[in-house]
Structure formats: C-alpha cells, structure tokens
Computed example of a mutant assay.
Amino acid sequence: MTLPLPNLDDRTYANLVEAAISQIPLEYPEWTDHNPTDTGIILIELFAWLTEMVLYQVNQIPDENYASFLSLLQGKDWSLPTNVSPQERQKALQLEIQKTLIELRKIYRAVTPEDFEKLVLIDWNQSADVGDVKIARVKCLGQRNLESTAESFAPGHISLVVIPEDNQVNTVDKYAALLNFLDARKLLTTRLHIVEPDYVAITILAELVLQDGAQPEAVKKQVKTEVEIFFAPLLWLFGRSVYISELYKLLDDIPGVDYVENLQIIDQYNHSQSVIDLAEHQLVKINLQDSKFTILVEVGNERKTI
C-alpha cells in the first residue's frame, strides 16, 4: 500500500474569483460595479486563472526531484538522460523507478520465520557460496535452540531445521557457509542454530486382502511405493502426527486391495500405536525393510497367504 500524495492547495478558479470579490467591500467600498464587464473584475478573473495554473504546478513533483529521490534510495548518483526526447526521458525515469522499487522489496534482513525460510530457499540456493549444500526444505522455529538437549523455551534463539538436497553431504561444518550467510542478515541479538530434522522411525505391519484377479506382486510393489511417497521427508509436514486411520485409507485405496486387516504402526520403541505424535522439528522415517505387508487371497471360504 502506497501513501496518497497530499494536495497542497485544492482551490479552483471559481474559489479564487469568489474569494477576491468578497474582499472588495472591505478593501474598497466605493467599488460597487461587480459585473463581468467591469475592468477590475476582468483583472481578478485573469489573475485567478494564472493563480490556478501555479497551484496546479505546486502539486506536481518535477522529474529532477524523482532523480534525487532515486539517488538517495539507490545509494549512488542517478541522473536523467540528456539529449533525448521528453517521451524517452519519461520512459527512462519510470523504468528506473520500477527497478528501484523491485530492489527495495527484496528481503535482505531476516526478522520473521518466513523471512529466514525465504532467504534459505531462494537467496541462499541462488548464491555463489551454496556449493554442495543446497537446501530442499527448511522450517524456522522461533524461541528454540535445537542444538541443546533442553527442550525449554529459549528467548532470542532461532533454529532452522533444514533438509539438504544431497543427503550424502556429511562434513562437520557443512552448514558453516549457510550460517555466515544468514548471520549478516539476522537481527543483532538473534542467535541462529542450523540442524537437520529429528526423524521418528516407524514400521508398518498389515494384512491386505486382494480383490479377485488382482496381481499380488504388483499390489505389493504399489503398496511400498505409495507408503514411501506418503511419508516422504519433502512432503510430510513438520510435527504432523501419524494416524492409523490415514494408513487404513491409503492402503484400502490402492488398486487391487479389497480391504485391510490387522494394521499396526510400530514406533521406535517397538510399541504398537494408533497415533504417533511428532514434535515441531520431527519428521517420519518409514522403515520399509522391516515393514511387512501380508497379501491374502480368498479361495472359497479360506484365505491363502501369498
């Protein structure tokens, strides 16, 4: 939203003529002929017309002033082009105004969590210092120090939970360049921490009863693919709980599956849970190697395990 330009003087020609004529009885009572044909009235109207044009110019900002404002905003001298037509001069001025406004709207300082996330995902990933540590996903948590084992409130601290595009990058100071990049943009009293997500491992056990004519191997392959996509770190929301009802629907909607039985979610402590709650810096890590999807086919009144 831009601030409206003030109207320094909004008096019109009619206002000026009326104000001048109203002063005649006070300044010169002997002047009684106020008809338009009177010479004095003609002069009043002429000066009112000239005054209205001057007042119009008062509300205008000259191009030279715009050039001075642009120089102040850019931090360098900028002047209007010379030896060009007025149209080209005005076009160059408008183009420079647009470029300056775009630069001013770019986020450089990080104040809010959204600022930090934008700086990491856009500015950092496009910077020359990115190297092998390009960030695919980031979650900014205010008032938290995730490098500390304490889970308490940490005023003045900000933790960035990042997922690098290349998870194979594993050096001691792999986020040092990113930390320096953000350190120049954060508020003076802010203390930054960059960590990776805390992954909560889960295992799924389920029995899937197939529809007639379904291909067991194809269904089993599709089940593993759908489950892996469902819990993908780049898609799962930070801190989003895992509900067994969602898994029932996910598996039941797979083509070839008639219905699901004996579904269990086993947490990292080897306990079966109907809901697994996650903290705001945690993601799910599905253990497909230990997960077991038993395929059942009904033959007559009996079920056969495949």
Rank of each mutant, 00 (worst) to 15 (best):
L5V: 05
L8K: 04
E18T: 13
E18H: 07
I21C: 07
L26I: 02
Y28E: 11
D33H: 01
H34G: 05
H34V: 03
T37L: 13
G40R: 03
L43C: 13
I44L: 07
I44K: 02
T51K: 02
T51N: 02
E52S: 13
L55T: 05
N65C: 09
K76T: 10
S79W: 01
P81H: 02
N83I: 04
Q87H: 09
R89H: 06
R89E: 00
K91I: 04
Q94C: 00
Q94V: 11
K99N: 14
R105A: 12
I107V: 15
R109T: 12
T112C: 08
L121F: 07
D123N: 08
N125V: 03
N125D: 08
A128L: 14
V130E: 01
V138R: 04
V138F: 02
C140P: 07
L141A: 00
T149H: 13
A150V: 11
A154N: 11
A154M: 08
G156A: 06
I158H: 00
V161M: 06
V161Q: 02
D166V: 11
Q168Y: 13
V172W: 08
Y175G: 10
A176W: 05
L178C: 13
L179G: 11
N180F: 12
L187Q: 15
L188I: 15
L188K: 12
I194D: 01
V195Y: 04
P197E: 11
I202A: 07
I202N: 01
L210R: 06
Q211V: 11
D212Y: 08
D212Q: 14
G213P: 10
G213I: 09
T225C: 07
F230K: 03
F231S: 03
P233Y: 00
G239H: 01
I244C: 06
K249H: 14
K249R: 15
D252C: 10
I254T: 04
D258Y: 09
D258A: 15
L263D: 04
L263W: 02
I266V: 15
Q268S: 14
N270A: 12
H271F: 12
S272A: 13
L278F: 06
A279F: 13
A279W: 11
E280D: 14
H281F: 10
L283S: 06
K285F: 05
D290Q: 15
S291N: 12
S291M: 11
F293T: 09
T294M: 12
I295E: 03
L296P: 10
G300M: 02
E302T: 14
T305I: 15
